[in-house]
């Protein structure tokens, strides 16, 4: 009997979903910089791209408090925010990031020591 309950318990552990982020990722693409509910202004970094370091997959981002190096991992998503120009937002890549572009970064687990979960890059067109 004890063995039976142990197996159930272990299966329960396997069944329960990992704790990483319960937020929906897909509609984030359409949310302009600074407007992600519950994240923007609390957990994200909003600033401008100061440097694009393509070889080591990092961006340097400057805001009013200083500069930060943001690591881009294979799971990081880059969104091009064209909403100010009245154009559709789209998926992007590191090559779309230019010095001076306004950006917003959400870090994995909201920890700035971790890679970016998503980066929104504002584009004029």
């Amino acid at each position: 009997m004890i063995k039976h309950w142990t197996i159930i318990g272990l299966l329960g552990i396997l069944l329960a979903v990992p704790t990483a982020g319960l937020a929906q990722k897909t509609t984030e693409l359409f949310i302009p910089i600074g407007q992600s509910p519950g994240l923007s202004g609390k957990h994200t970094l909003i600033g401008k791209i100061a440097q694009v370091n393509a070889p080591d997959n990092t961006l340097t981002i400057a805001d009013a408090t200083g500069t930060y190096s943001v690591s881009i991992a294979s799971g990081s998503r880059i969104y091009l925010d064209r909403s100010k120009a009245g154009l559709p937002n789209s998926q992007g890549a590191l090559t779309d990031c230019n010095v001076g572009d306004p950006v917003e970064v959400k870090f994995v687990d909201n920890a700035r020591s971790k890679p970016a979960e998503w980066i929104k890059v504002q584009k004029a067109r």
Binding site: L22, A23, S36, P37, G38, L39
Partner: peptide, 18 residues
């Protein structure tokens, strides 16, 4: 995982509108 942003009930409407 129905809500964007922080995934909360408060944020749900933002994803629904989109």
């Amino acid at each position: 995982d129905g809500a964007p942003g922080d995934g909360s009930l408060r944020s749900f409407a933002t994803g629904a509108v989109i």
